[in-house]
Structure formats: structure tokens, C-alpha cells
Simulated scan of single mutants.
Amino acid sequence: MLSATAALAAEGLKTDWSLSPTYNTIMAVAAGAGLITLVWFIRDLWVKQERNIEGYAFAFGILGFILTTTGLHMTLTWPIKGLPWDNIIFGETSLGFGVLLAATSWYLWRNREALRTAERPIKVLADLVRPISLFVFGLGLALVGIGVAGLWYQFFVAPAEEPISGLFADYPIVEAIFMSGLFFLVALGALLFPWAVKREAVVGRPGTVHRVAGWAWVVGGLGFFLFGALNFFTHIGLIFNTNVPS
């Protein structure tokens, strides 16, 4: 099957990467850090009984700001012209996650003293997020759709001019499996979120659903975190290789 990226190249549709912002680099790092930090926060409240509310509010605020601003800009302006589907894949998902993190930061900071003195702050937070858990579930469904589309159209393949990732340009299924796998992992945690919240509210202790969702977000988040960091090199290399005369 010819990948979507390869099909565009075959038709002679080239992208000037110096004029096509691809800041899904910082978005991937922030999204990965956000997922991992969210699991840390829940673990600290639930298992360690730590109450560093300000620290997590600070972290969620920074990550939420990055994801909201970049996601909103990408969603509204579609800056990636050569690979337009990337604006949906990275822009809209980052916007949704960024707003959730920013709202979490605001609530934690505003209610830090009440949470610090609450007998079970995890119960307070579970009751709070139950109404929004439907949106989180919806984002999970969206991530499943992205993962399926990635395998179906194989559009995650990097151009041959991109260092490291470009080595798989002739094998689009390799990067399709890797990237779609990350989306599926994060989707799993999001799809389990409503049941995880309900179990905490009713039972009051962690169970299998929490462990599965937590590990899905940690592993998926770490994958996005490292891949985004790697892309700071590969995307610079792509721009250099396609815009600097040899």
C-alpha cells in the first residue's frame, strides 16, 4: 500500500518545511510529560498520601499553557500545509488535553488548602471530574480513530530527507505501527477513565482498571515524550536537508 505521504511526493507535491511550522515537537514533549505527571499526581495522592498541590498545579499550568496555545493555533490556522492531517492529529488533541490540564491547574491552585486538609483528596477530585469524564472518553475514541487512520493510510512515515526517521521512508508501516501504537495506548487510558473515576467514588481503593489506565498513560506518555525530544533533531535536520544548497 502506498502511504499518503509517498502519494503526495509521487504527485510532485513538495513541502517547503522552512515555511510549514511543525511544532508538534514541543507539543509531543508537553503531552508526554502531562500524561506521566498526571499519573504521578494520582499516585502521590492515593498511594503516598503526599499533598504537594502547588507543585502539581505549577506543572499542569505550564504544560496546559503550551498545549492550549499551540493546539489552538494549529487547530484554527492549519499551519502544516504539506501534511494537513497533522493539524487534526496533533492540533485538536493537544488543544483538548491542554485545556483539561489548564483547568486542573487552576482548580488545584484555587483549592490547595482545602485539598491539603481533606481526609481523602482523591475522592474530592474524583467527584469533581466525573462530569468531564465523558469528554475524556470522547478524546479516547478520537485517539482510536487516529490510530486506525494511521495504520490504514500510513501517513506517519517521515520524508527520506529527515534524519533517523527517514531511514524508514520505504517502509511506512514501521512508523505507522509505532505512532498508532502510542495513540492506542493513550486511548486505552482515556477510555477507562470514566470507570476509574466511578470506582474511586464508589469503592475508594485502586483496582485493575486504575493500574491498566495508569500504565497505558505512562508508557504512551513516555513514547511521545522521547519521540518529541528526538524530533527536535530530526525536524531541524529535515529543514536543513531540504533548504540548504549542497
Rank of each mutant, 00 (worst) to 15 (best):
residue 245 P to A: 08
residue 48 K to S: 13
residue 24 N to W: 13
residue 144 V to Y: 06
residue 56 Y to P: 03
residue 150 G to K: 10
residue 208 T to Q: 09
residue 192 L to H: 06
residue 17 W to F: 15
residue 233 F to I: 15
residue 202 V to D: 14
residue 66 I to L: 08
residue 168 F to H: 01
residue 108 L to N: 02
residue 124 V to Y: 04
residue 197 V to F: 02
residue 120 R to E: 12
residue 120 R to C: 04
residue 214 G to E: 04
residue 239 I to W: 06
residue 94 S to F: 07
residue 111 N to E: 13
residue 105 S to T: 01
residue 26 I to D: 00
residue 34 G to C: 08
residue 26 I to W: 05
residue 175 E to S: 15
residue 50 E to N: 11
residue 177 I to V: 15
residue 100 L to S: 10
residue 127 D to C: 10
residue 111 N to L: 08
residue 246 S to Y: 11
residue 171 Y to K: 03
residue 29 V to I: 15
residue 58 F to Y: 06
residue 182 L to D: 02
residue 191 L to Q: 09
residue 17 W to Y: 15
residue 34 G to S: 07
residue 130 R to N: 05
residue 111 N to F: 13
residue 208 T to V: 14
residue 68 T to H: 07
residue 114 A to H: 09
residue 151 L to D: 01
residue 229 A to N: 05
residue 140 G to R: 05
residue 161 E to W: 00
residue 116 R to I: 11
residue 238 L to G: 07
residue 151 L to F: 07
residue 195 W to N: 12
residue 43 R to A: 10
residue 199 R to A: 11
residue 238 L to S: 05
residue 169 A to N: 13
residue 151 L to I: 04
residue 244 V to M: 11
residue 191 L to H: 09
residue 83 L to Y: 15
residue 210 H to C: 02
residue 214 G to S: 00
residue 65 F to A: 13
residue 126 A to T: 02
residue 63 L to M: 08
residue 230 L to M: 15
residue 224 F to L: 14
residue 134 L to Y: 13
residue 146 I to Q: 03
residue 111 N to A: 09
residue 222 L to P: 06
residue 223 G to D: 04
residue 69 T to Q: 06
residue 208 T to H: 03
